[in-house]
Simulated scan of single mutants.
Amino acid sequence: MSAPQAGADRTRRSPGPRGLRRFTSPRRTPEERCELCSAPLADERHHHLVDTEKRALACACRPCAQLLDRTGGPQGRFRAVPGRFLSDPGHRIDEQAWEQLRIPVGVAFFFRNSALDRLVALYPSPAGATESELDPESWQSVLAATELAGLLEPDVEALLLRRQEGRVECFLVPIDICYELVGRMRLLWQGFDGGAEARADLEAFFALVRDRARDPRGSRS
């Protein structure tokens, strides 16, 4: 992933969900607990909820995640982040389509913010999540090139794109994974190009995504 360029067109730093701070600092030793009922969270890969009113990620135990997602429904305040990973090997996002985005790094993710009622485009940078404020027509021309865009659940899932060596990879992933990537890059980035450690971590991250992602034509939600 190349370094952000100074003065990129119509971009601004985005703080992201308030819960992003759990991904931008070293893991603490005290036992993590559910932020709703205070039950201990034994599983490191525990559930997350999106608070759509406060734009915050909250750690949750399985019972709380299931209860709040079921009672809140699609329009509720809390929405459980699902665990599905999908890939689209037949997408039509090429180099020309990527250039239309004018995103100065090789990774970006898009999600639909239900409170704003629009798509939001973000990319990781040494300063954290940075929002790209482009003409919606530019986004739509890219999103129309993959069937995954039509499968996105608002607030809780994202379309994750990576441009590398003349090709673009396209995935649908849980939103918390995207903010985890932002936090990791912020912690590890060194120098102009990120440094060897950040690049290695980025490769490991996408290797995991590729391993978990399935083609939606042969997968179940």
Score class of each variant (00 low, 15 high):
Val107Met: 08
Glu180Thr: 07
Glu32Leu: 08
Phe110Asp: 01
Val142His: 02
Gly83Gln: 14
Gly194Trp: 04
Asp193Phe: 14
Trp139Thr: 02
Ser125Thr: 15
Glu153Asp: 14
Pro15Ile: 07
Gly183Leu: 10
Asp176Ile: 04
Arg167Asp: 11
Leu36Pro: 01
Glu53Thr: 12
Leu151Pro: 02
Gln164Pro: 01
Val173Lys: 06
Pro15Asn: 09
Ala149Gly: 09
Gly83Pro: 05
Ala121Arg: 04
Asp155Gly: 08
Phe192Gln: 15
Ser138Val: 03
Gly150Pro: 04
Gly128Asn: 01
Asp193Met: 12
Val156Arg: 05
Phe192Tyr: 08
Gly7Cys: 01
Ala149Arg: 00
Pro154Ser: 10
Leu159Asn: 04
Thr29Ile: 12
Arg21Lys: 09
Ala8Pro: 01
Cys34Pro: 07
Val120Lys: 13
Val81Pro: 02
Cys59Gln: 13
Pro82Ala: 11
Cys170Glu: 06
Ser141Cys: 05
Leu151His: 10
Pro104Asp: 02
Arg22Ile: 12
Arg92Asn: 08
Cys170Ser: 12
Ala65Phe: 03
Glu157Ile: 07
Ala207Thr: 13
Asp155Met: 08
Glu203Leu: 13
Gln140Pro: 02
Asp155Val: 07
Ala129Lys: 03
Cys170Gly: 00
Gly90Ile: 04
Ser14Leu: 00
Ala42Pro: 03
Ser138His: 12
Gly19Gln: 01
Ser87Asp: 13
Leu148Ser: 11
Pro74Arg: 15
Glu133Gly: 00
Pro154Ile: 11
Phe192Lys: 12
Glu169Gln: 14
Ser221Met: 12
Pro174Lys: 11
Glu95Leu: 13
Glu31Leu: 13
Leu122Gly: 01
Leu20Gln: 06
Arg199Gln: 15
Lys54Ala: 15
Ala213Leu: 09
Gly90Ser: 13
Gly194Thr: 09
Ile93Ser: 05
Met185Gly: 03
Gly166Pro: 08
Phe78Pro: 05
Ala196Pro: 11
Pro82Cys: 10
Arg167Val: 13
Glu157Arg: 06
Glu137Ile: 09
Met185Ser: 06
Arg84Gly: 03
Glu131Tyr: 02
Pro136Met: 08
Gly128Tyr: 03
Phe85Cys: 07
Pro17Trp: 06
Gln66Ile: 11
Trp139Cys: 01
Asp43Pro: 03
Glu137Gln: 15
Arg210Pro: 00
Arg45Thr: 10
Ser38Arg: 15
Pro136Asn: 09
Arg22Gly: 04
Cys64Phe: 09
Ser38Met: 10
Val105Glu: 01
